[in-house]
Design a protein around this nucleic acid. Structure first.
Length: 1133
RNA sequence: AGGCGCGUAGCUCAGCUGGCUAGAGCGCAUCCUUGACAUGGAUGAGGUCGUUGGUUCGACUCCAAUCGCGCCUACCA
């Protein structure tokens, strides 16, 4: 694999090297592109402009033809510009090149280039280049060919450069042993490569360059600086077995944005990360591996098995943390990193394990942990207890059997219903409601339990619903939670003399009927049968003996183990429990008292509801992988809970026992150790400084699915052991779904791998990936279809920044997040926009006076002051977004500021000011251009870290800022004194007038290149300063402002505020009439609405005066406008 | 059975404590390669804000009911 890459790399290198320096030979045979020859030749014939030198070429944007300086009419516009050799070069816009043809041409060229270049999935770059080089030798004959060739060469050079970078980063040696080249291409950090910015944004190389630089510079680390406020986030530790999925990527994006934001705001940030040993999940993975080898864990034995899990953990354990790095996560990797993998803590490392034992021992001493025989959810395949939360009950099709139990005295019978007839072997009673008149006479009597020859009593219990079924319930306390409760109420009365004390456990731990040991209770034929076999047999026998009343289809909720999907069996076993009542009360208090706040707030309800109805927590698991319970048993049955065996022995000795001690075989529920992470990761039980500094942490970002599993338990445990809450805020993020709102699942094929969105993936690869590992043909086909339909061309590489921006934009307070690839594309385009805006600024400012020297005079226009003012408002809004966890709002604010204001308006204005302005005006413009951009980059950095770093390095010096990295620069703070409402008013007017002109042009069907005069009737002082900008932005030839009536000519007129605009342009009366009628209709409907409001006496009386005044002013404005429209219409006839 | 969330343009979503013509992106239509950007620019079409009722001068926004979708919790055999 690596060898192949190396070889490929060498061959590509050699090829590139061979053709470097001298003109790169053209790689594309023009004969392959029919559109090009068809489209260009006719124009070329008639034109023939002579080139001043050989450098003239066609680029992808305009076709420049060498010829005499004359262009035949009808073929295009002539735009003179100074030629390099003093001659005039005509730039010809080829008008007879149909748009569709042009598009087609571009596409064909692009395709051809892409074919040649291939991307990094190309299996053999070398041979592709060889192939292409063959064509080169044939050369091209025509002049146009030469020009096209030159253009393609340039494109190729750019792309080859990118390709080289990609290849280098792909094959370079990892900087440190932890970074696998497959996941995180390492790059020997050179922060400021002195290259010009590429024509468009290419994320791969940028991302590869900056992450290792940041990490190795130590920017992610926290410190013990007490003068800075602390800001801390605990990462929900992902499973060591896991790989990054969309949910992780989403959460981590938000966490990273918060961390980067606060770091730049001057906080001492600490993003604590780690991985979870994930008991059951991990054990299952390794057991599957063994299964593939034809072995089981029992073949290995406990010790060897655990060793094997550790080995596997070491090997694959940091996959997910490496993937996190691809997203740009600025986590404190080295913190609590006892494993030396730069991946934070591991919940089973030595330090964490010690803390777990300490917690267990203390809670036992405090009487909060107890051991007992209880009914628990049992997974018969895994052979372990699972907690209530790990059981998922889905509605499934089953059957309901009604069974007749005859009265012992022969006076009749009762009928009970069950979905699990096999459990009747463990019945100890029949229960009815105490007030149920039908059965009152039966109370105290006994009924025959069919097939067994036993009798059981009829008892009364409130939990029986007389309305349901027959109103009679069979009671099986050993295999039903509800019945167990009934048993606890009757065990000392009616059930006192029942066999086994009324608690009969009929199953073995692998869910077969006990083959022995209950010979007096279980008839011979059923002994040893699997539970489902027993069910069938018993149903048959009941029918045969006439006890079966009915058997009908029935929908019931089947409890299945979350891990194995196996039907869970309530089973009577010895387990360890945590007593929850007191802990829960405190946990409720923390939220009720506001020490912990949920965002969005409504999750509080869910949290409260669970804690108010909490059951004791079964924490023991009959597994091998996990924290082994620190309890030792003597031969006499005594239990010693201790920190280690020596301590247990001392305890035993104190009680006069010196015999053998056997350690408990069970391990703890994974969530037990997870619940401790908020303080154990900070060094507890030692009294560390970090416990002071970083507890409580600032916010927990997590999904609602683990509010119970994790959030609530962390709150309770942390309070209990530290008297602090674990975190102040809990941000519950949305669940990521696909674009149609469907749950992402492997079997549907609608999962997305965040890394594929970053790097891109071909259709073939995606298909292979989505269908692999699916066992059912049905699933494979479904997945195949989904992928074909939704990603017909694979997924393009959007880059980490675009993905992050998408997540931020979709992070509303909604419960689900429908991930739409189109939005991802939109934000990739945004990155490109930012990239190109920066290119523009650099082209215009690099090597020029950008006002860094503060002593030189600077003149600022209203437009300069406006964009600065607008920036302050955006900064304010972004701060508020972070404060309220409204990532969608802040992303939107950044997007609009950058694109709609800075790019669409300010950059265009800056062009005017640089072209026409005085020295100090130009200085002011360049200064504003660079400083606002620099601020935008910092503002956006927490969300899109890579591109902002890359661009900032170049922009910052022009804006008078220095520093090694944007990520440790101060975050922009709004300066209210720079909000300039006057400038905003001016700018608002400019936008209105420009927009009005553009609309008129468009409505009139004016050709884009055509300039015409604009007449404005209005206040000279209000319009005058806008003129130079209007000329450029609205493509006018001149602007004439008058305070008198506009000349009465046929020209389109538009109202902007109190001004009337008239665009002097030839009109098509029909078109103009249509436009006016439409406008008239709009105005009439507005007037009708205003009239209705103002005609309402109540409105005028009760609405705030401001609103009423506004409405009156609107009405007046509309009326004036309408009158004018009507007059124009009249004139047009 | 309870509880929660959602329903706004063809699609994915904003719309703060009620008040200017209900917004964005994508998609669609027309036009445009003009030295930052076609991953672009300009203009436009498209919505009785799920339905009904109420409160109010005024409701996408508040209240009630109802329909549809989704989720969570629960001991209905």
């Amino acid at each position: 694999m690596a060898d192949d890459d190396d070889d490929l790399m060498r061959r590509a290198e050699a090829l590139i090297e061979r053709h470097r320096g001298a003109a790169f030979p053209p790689l594309i045979d023009l004969a392959d592109i029919p559109t090009l020859t068809e489209a260009v030749e006719p124009v070329a014939e008639g034109v023939g402009i002579r080139a001043p030198n050989d450098a003239v070429r066609m680029d992808a944007k305009a076709i420049v033809l060498p010829s005499e300086p004359s262009v035949p009419p009808g073929h295009g516009l002539q735009v003179p510009s100074a030629g390099a050799g003093g001659e005039v070069i005509a730039r010809v816009q080829v008008q007879n090149l149909e748009h569709s043809v042009y598009q087609k041409l571009r596409r064909e060229l692009d395709e051809r280039i892409a074919e040649v270049l291939q991307d990094r999935f190309m299996p053999d770059i070398g041979s592709a280049l060889d192939q292409v080089l063959k064509k080169i030798s044939e050369g091209l004959k025509s002049d146009i060919g030469a020009m096209v060739r030159a253009s393609i060469e340039e494109t190729l050079h750019t792309q080859l450069k990118a390709l080289r970078v990609g290849l280098e980063s792909k094959t370079a040696e990892p900087a440190s042993g932890q970074l696998g080249s497959d996941i995180m291409p390492a790059f020997s950090a050179s922060p400021t490569p002195d290259m010009e910015l590429a024509k468009s944004f290419e994320p791969a190389a940028i991302e590869a360059r900056w992450y290792p630089f940041w990490e190795s510079s130590g920017y992610f680390r926290s410190n013990s600086d007490q003068s800075k406020p602390a800001y801390c986030i605990q990462l929900p530790p992902p499973n060591v077995t896991g790989t990054l999925h969309m949910g992780h990527a989403f959460q981590q994006t938000l966490m990273d944005a918060l961390i980067r934001y606060h770091r730049m705001c001057g906080y001492n940030t600490n993003w604590i990360v780690g991985t979870d040993h994930a008991g059951i999940a991990t054990q299952i993975v390794v057991e599957r591996q063994l299964q593939a080898e034809g072995r089981t864990r029992h073949d290995l034995g406990r010790e060897a098995f655990v060793k094997r899990v550790w080995e596997w953990k070491q090997q694959s354990g940091s996959t997910i943390t490496r993937q996190m790095r691809r997203l740009g996560a600025s986590a404190n990797w080295g913190y609590a990193d006892t494993e030396g993998q730069s991946a934070g803590y591991f919940t089973m490392d030595e330090k964490m394990s010690r803390a777990v034992v300490e917690v267990f021992v203390r809670m036992r001493e405090q009487g909060l942990i107890y051991r007992g025989k209880r009914l628990v959810n049992w997974d018969p395949v895994l052979g372990t207890a699972v907690s209530d939360l790990e059981v998922e009950a889905e509605e499934e099709d089953g059957k309901l059997w009604e069974i007749r139990y005859p009265l012992e005295d022969g006076t009749g019978s009762v009928v009970v219903a069950t979905t699990r007839p096999e459990t009747m072997l463990g019945d100890v009673a029949v229960a009815v409601h105490p007030q149920d008149e039908r059965y009152r006479p039966l109370l105290g009597k006994r009924v025959w339990l069919p097939l067994t020859g036993r009798t059981i009593p009829v008892i009364a219990d409130d939990s029986v619903d007389p309305e349901f079924g027959t109103g009679c319930v069979k009671v099986t306390p050993g295999h039903d939670f509800n019945d167990y409760q009934i048993w606890t109420r009757h065990r000392d009365a009616e059930l006192r003399d029942a066999p086994q004390g009324g608690l009969i456990s009929i199953f073995t731990l692998d869910a077969r009927i006990k083959p022995s040991g209950l010979d007096d209770l279980i008839p011979q034929p059923y002994r040893g049968l699997d539970r489902f076999a027993a069910r069938a047999q018993i149903a048959r026998d009941l029918a045969a003996t006439g006890h079966l009343v009915s058997e009908k289809p029935y929908k019931l909720r089947v409890p299945r183990s979350g891990r194995t999907e196996e039907i869970v069996e309530p089973m009577l076993t010895d387990q360890w429990f945590v007593q929850m009542e007191d802990l829960a009360r405190r946990g409720l208090g923390a939220v009720a008292g506001g020490e912990v706040r949920f965002f969005p707030e409504h999750w509080t309800t869910t949290y409260n509801h669970w804690l108010e109805n909490i059951q004791d927590w079964c924490i023991s698991r009959q597994l091998w992988w996990g924290h082994r319970i620190p309890a030792w048993y003597g031969d006499d049955g005594a239990v010693y809970v201790a920190r280690d065996e020596a301590e247990a022995r001392a305890q035993a000795a104190a009680r006069g026992y010196s015999g053998a001690l056997k350690r408990d075989e069970d391990v703890l529920d994974t969530w037990f150790s997870s619940a401790l992470v908020p303080f154990t990761a900070l060094g507890w039980p030692e009294k560390t400084k970090d416990l002071e500094l970083f507890l409580p942490s600032s916010v927990l970002v997590t999904g609602f699915d683990i509010i119970f599993f994790w959030v609530a338990r962390m709150i309770m445990m942390t309070q209990h052991f530290t008297d602090k809450v674990p975190f102040r805020h809990v941000y519950i993020n949305a669940i990521v779904r696909d674009a149609e709102g469907e749950k992402m699942s492997k079997s549907k094929g609608n999962t997305l791998d965040p890394l594929d969105l970053i790097d891109g993936i071909t259709l073939e690869e995606l298909l292979a990936k989505s269908t692999s590992g699916l066992l059912l043909t049905d699933h494979r086909q479904k997945a195949y279809r989904y992928v074909r339909q939704h990603f017909p061309e694979g997924i393009p590489a959007f880059g980490a920044d675009a993905l992050r921006f998408t997540f931020a934009s979709l992070a509303t307070f909604a419960r689900t997040l429908n991930f739409d690839l189109n939005r991802c594309e939109g934000y990739r385009n945004f990155c490109n926009k930012l990239w190109n805006a920066t290119r523009f600024v650099l082209m215009n400012c690099e090597g020029k006076d950008t006002g860094v020297d503060e002593s030189l005079p600077v003149e600022l226009s209203f437009a300069d002051r406006w964009i600065v003012s607008r920036l302050q408002r955006a900064e304010q809004a972004v701060h508020e977004g972070y404060r309220d966890y409204r990532f969608d709002m802040l992303a939107r604010e950044i997007y609009e500021l950058t694109w709609d204001e800075y790019c669409d308006w300010y950059v265009e204005i800056a062009k005017v000011q640089i072209a026409n302005g005085s020295e100090s005006q130009q200085r002011g413009t360049r200064r504003t251009l660079t400083r606002v951009l620099e601020a935008i980059l910092r503002l956006a950095h927490p969300v899109i870290p890579f591109i902002t770093e890359e661009l900032w390095q170049k922009v910052a010096p022009l804006a008078g800022r220095r520093g090694p990295s944007i990520m440790i620069q101060p975050y922009p703070r709004p300066q209210p004194e720079r909000i300039d409402e006057t400038a905003e008013t001016w700018m608002g007017r400019l936008k209105d007038v420009v927009n009005a002109c553009r609309t008129l042009r468009s409505d009139m069907g004016v050709a884009p290149g055509q300039r015409m005069p604009l007449f404005v009737q209005g206040d000279r002082d209000e319009i005058g300063p806008l003129v130079p900008y209007l000329m450029a932005l609205a493509r006018l030839s001149e602007v004439l402002v008058t305070d008198r009536e506009l000349p009465k000519v046929d020209a389109p007129v538009s109202m902007v505020g109190k001004c009337r605009l008239m665009l002097k342009v030839e009109i098509e009366p029909a078109v103009e009439r249509a436009r006016l009628r439409k406008e008239k209709a709009r105005l009439e409907s507005e007037i009708a609405k205003c009239d209705a409001k103002l005609g309402n006496a109540e409105f005028v009386k009760r609405a705030p005066p401001l609103i009423v005044a506004q409405e009156k002013e609107r009405l007046a404005r509309f009326k004036v406008a309408l009158a004018q429209i009507e007059e124009q219409l009249r004139r047009l006839g």
